Amino acid sequence: MADSPKYKRVMLKVSGEALMGSREYGLDPETVQQIAGDVRDVSRMGVEVCLVVGGGNIFRGLAGAAAGMERSTADYMGMLATVINALALQNALEKLDVDTRVLSAIPMATVAEPYIRRRAVRHMEKGRVVIFGAGTGNPFFTTDTAAALRASEMNCDILLKGTKVDGVYDADPVSVPDAKRYDCLTYMQVLTQDLGVMDHSAISLARENSIPIAVFSIYQQGAFADVLRGNGRYTIVQHDCA
């Protein structure tokens, strides 16, 4: 079938900033609901879905460190912010009758299950959406790296990064109207040209485990499902573009 998904198990990375919508900080309920709707639609296609969500809409560790806060403390605060976002997404998904579990790398049994790899895999095998909170559970690692790590641990077929734009460009498409969008890039191109798709640790981890990365616009309704069918506008990062 032409419209059938090309991937069985996928990881979606959503930045905290994406959840802000047009706000300056915090959560935009309409944006959260739209993202939840897209995840529901993909789950109903028979795809096993897990997510890593950032916390930059609430607190960003690097910004805190730059302002004089001790880096580890700032990063832990950022990890706690990701759990807030994970719970918000879980709530939105369950309102759409999607069975969802939040697994936290920092134990907090009252609000989330502890992260156990085999448990997470079993949830996805049962058709549940799994949201990973608290990053890797360690300071000095970004949620991009957490997404690549969890995608590797879950044996995901692809890692998708939902952003504000529909792919990777050679310049900021907002300020440079004729910026070129790449259809395909290799991992090495992203690393050597420092294109900022994800941080270098995340790209290297995806490369080592041969997990392609697709960058698309999370704000375009239905784009998540389109990418998994091989349609729509996005940039794919993989070993070879030939």
Rank of each mutant, 00 (worst) to 15 (best):
M1R: 11
D3C: 01
Y7K: 02
K8V: 02
M11Q: 11
L12R: 08
V14G: 01
V14W: 01
S15V: 09
L19C: 06
G21K: 12
R23T: 00
R23A: 14
Y25W: 12
Y25A: 15
Y25E: 14
G26T: 10
L27E: 01
E30S: 13
T31L: 04
V32L: 15
Q34F: 00
G37T: 11
V39H: 04
D41K: 13
V42F: 02
R44V: 00
M45C: 03
M45Y: 01
E48C: 00
L51N: 08
G56T: 11
N57T: 10
I58G: 01
R60G: 10
G61I: 08
G64L: 09
A65R: 04
R71C: 03
Y76L: 13
G78T: 08
G78N: 04
M79A: 12
M79L: 13
M79K: 07
A81L: 10
T82W: 09
V83G: 01
N85T: 05
L87S: 06
L87W: 04
A88S: 14
A92K: 04
L93S: 05
L96F: 01
D97G: 00
D97F: 03
D99I: 02
T100V: 06
V102E: 08
S104V: 06
P107H: 10
P107V: 12
M108D: 12
T110S: 14
V111Q: 03
V111W: 02
Y115D: 09
R117S: 02
R118V: 01
R119W: 00
E125Y: 03
V130G: 03
F132D: 06
G133I: 02
N138F: 13
N138A: 08
F141L: 14
L149W: 01
R150A: 10
S152T: 15
E153F: 02
M154D: 07
M154G: 04
C156W: 08
D157S: 11
D157K: 07
I158K: 05
L160W: 05
K164Q: 12
D166N: 13
G167D: 08
V168D: 03
V168C: 04
V168E: 01
Y169T: 05
D170F: 05
D170L: 04
D172Y: 10
P173V: 08
P173A: 09
V174P: 00
P177W: 08
P177A: 12
D183S: 15
L185A: 10
L185V: 11
Y187N: 09
M188V: 06
Q189F: 01
D194G: 11
D194N: 14
V197E: 04
S201G: 05
I203C: 10
S204F: 00
S204M: 13
S204N: 11
L205I: 14
E208H: 10
S210D: 15
I211Y: 09
P212E: 11
I213S: 11
A214F: 05
S217A: 13
I218H: 02
Q221T: 13
G222N: 01
F224P: 03
V227N: 03
L228Q: 02
L228W: 05
R229C: 07
N231F: 12
R233C: 03
Y234G: 02
